[in-house]
């Protein structure tokens, strides 16, 4: 057998690559924290529910969670603007180099972070190293209908485009790569480029406030690139140099 000894090469920071490919803008000022994205994501990506005890112990499987904090005490109490936190699809992702088996790996063609479920051996190092804490682990066999008989009928809802994960596997937001792939495939079959706004992840699709915008960040005319150009924009934990692909627009009274 001819063995290909080529190891995936970690990309350098050439200007071109820094431009990125897919990106997201989340406007915290109009996010109402309604959790539609959370539910939509779960339905699209076959995310299991874990039950009350595990949910209360930090084992929820949400790929996107909405954070909020309290400031001050009554009556001057304020809630910080809702902040949906999902995988930031870092260009220089801390989760990637620590995986011993390349299960957490960068997709060079799409410039997003991948989690290859079937390669994952469950060391959970990537989750430790993720500064955003957006990786979730299948602590139990949450999807096994033999162990959870209530799933027998519920599993009819599973999306056939997305792998159903079993115990011991790390997972995270994929920017709905099945939708990206589907749209790319359609565009290719029609002999054209992917149009702006054609790829819509489940969260952005559901968001009643239209607070989530998704698209190509390397295209300066795309909706997402335009939305990101504002003084309100920032990246989460920018100081770590992870080059996230999700831009947050600050909430509150900033113009």
């Amino acid at each position: 057998m001819a063995t290909d000894l080529q190891l995936p090469v970690f990309t350098n920071n050439s200007e071109n690559e820094l431009a990125g490919r897919w990106g997201m803008v989340i406007d915290q000022d109009i996010c109402t924290g309604c959790q539609a994205c959370v539910a939509a994501c779960a339905m699209e990506n076959n995310i299991p529910f874990v039950g009350e005890a595990d949910a209360g112990y930090g084992r929820t499987m949400h790929w996107i969670r909405i954070e909020r904090f309290w400031q001050g005490t009554f009556p001057e109490v304020k809630m910080t603007p809702y902040q949906p936190v999902l995988c930031q699809q870092c260009h220089k992702a801390p989760c990637e180099p620590v995986c011993p088996v390349f299960a957490s790996v960068h997709s060079v063609s799409e410039d997003i972070n991948l989690q290859v479920y079937n390669r994952c051996v469950g060391t959970r190092y990537c989750a430790n190293n993720c500064p955003y804490q957006v990786r979730v682990f299948n602590w139990r066999d949450y999807t096994d209908a033999r162990q959870r008989p209530e799933l027998v009928t519920l599993q009819n809802q599973l999306n056939p485009d997305v792998t159903v994960r079993r115990r011991g596997v790390m997972e995270k937001c994929t920017f709905c790569i099945q939708r990206i792939r589907h749209v790319e495939d359609t565009a290719q079959s029609e002999g054209r480029d992917v149009r702006d706004g054609e790829v819509v992840p489940a969260c952005a699709q559901a968001c009643p406030a239209d607070a989530i915008v998704f698209g190509r960040v390397d295209d300066p005319t795309s909706k997402v690139s335009k939305a990101a150009i504002t003084s309100r924009g920032s990246h989460m934990l920018e100081e770590l140099g992870t080059l996230p692909r999700v831009t947050y627009l600050a909430g509150g009274s900033a113009q």
Partner: peptide, 20 residues
Amino acid sequence: WLIPFPNERGLWPDFHSPLM
């Protein structure tokens, strides 16, 4: 899979990883 051995997939463990 942590052991480096030649396989049909052409996959190797990641020597960047401290776990490796």
